[in-house]
């Protein structure tokens, strides 16, 4: 799996805001990519993008809120920090309710923005890790045979080997063999680990 370097995507129609934001964030050691409109960000967007978006609410053409909606419909999980002017606060609250990551009101304190970016990046890496883990688990699940899958469901449901044998009308020995195969294929050593893996996917 190719690692994509996290970047901060600044979407703002004001040239000075974009330029000064890059200067500030690059000074903190972040990678920054700027876009002068929601449309140009959408054109460049890729599923594997990592990092966060710093998004101006007020832009001509497509507004920040509309971009948020569009990204949602595309299944993007990049955290968004909305940058609002005075009086846009109700707008920002609406965005938060729709699941935006955070918002900050202009004029803002630099440290405030940097803290929010830090939080957004942490959230992004959590999301990425979860996605990776989920993918790994579903890959492993895909390798189970039909029978192994049945046994696993019953094991996870807390049934004893004896009960499973009765239910599936197979011998205890066969159950034990299936069970061992399940543990091996799923890459877990204990029952607790197996339950946890299956639960995270649900």
């Amino acid at each position: 799996m190719s690692e994509v370097t996290p970047s901060i995507y600044v979407v703002d129609d004001d040239e000075a805001m974009r330029d000064s934001m890059s200067w500030l964030l690059e000074g903190e050691g972040y990678r920054v990519t700027c876009f002068d409109s929601a449309e140009s960000f959408l054109r460049a967007r890729r599923d594997e993008m990592r990092g966060c978006i710093v998004l101006d609410v007020r832009m001509p053409e497509m507004s920040g809120l509309e971009l948020h909606e569009k990204l949602d419909s595309l299944g993007s999980q990049l955290p968004i920090i909305f940058v609002t002017g005075h009086g846009d606060v109700p707008m920002a609250v609406a965005a938060l309710q729709r699941g935006a990551c955070d918002f900050i009101e202009k004029p803002f304190h630099n440290q405030d923005l940097l803290d929010r970016i830090q939080r957004a990046l942490e959230l992004d890496s959590e999301i990425a890790q979860r996605r990776q883990r989920d993918n790994a688990i579903s890959n492993r699940l895909g390798q189970l045979t039909q029978r192994e899958h049945e046994v696993m469901q019953l094991v996870v449901a807390g049934k004893l080997n004896k009960q499973i044998a009765d239910e599936l009308e197979i011998s205890m020995k066969t159950v034990e063999a299936h069970r061992a195969r399940v543990m091996e294929k799923m890459g877990v050593r204990t029952l607790a680990e197996l339950v946890k893996a299956v639960m995270t996917l649900r």
Binding site: D14, L24, G85, H86, F108
Partner: peptide, 19 residues
């Protein structure tokens, strides 16, 4: 006035903080 001033003021703050 408030909206328009926000842009240059935020930009100035960013440039200074970066320096």
């Amino acid at each position: 006035l408030a909206h328009e001033l926000n842009q240059p003021l935020s930009a100035i703050a960013n440039y200074c903080a970066g320096c």
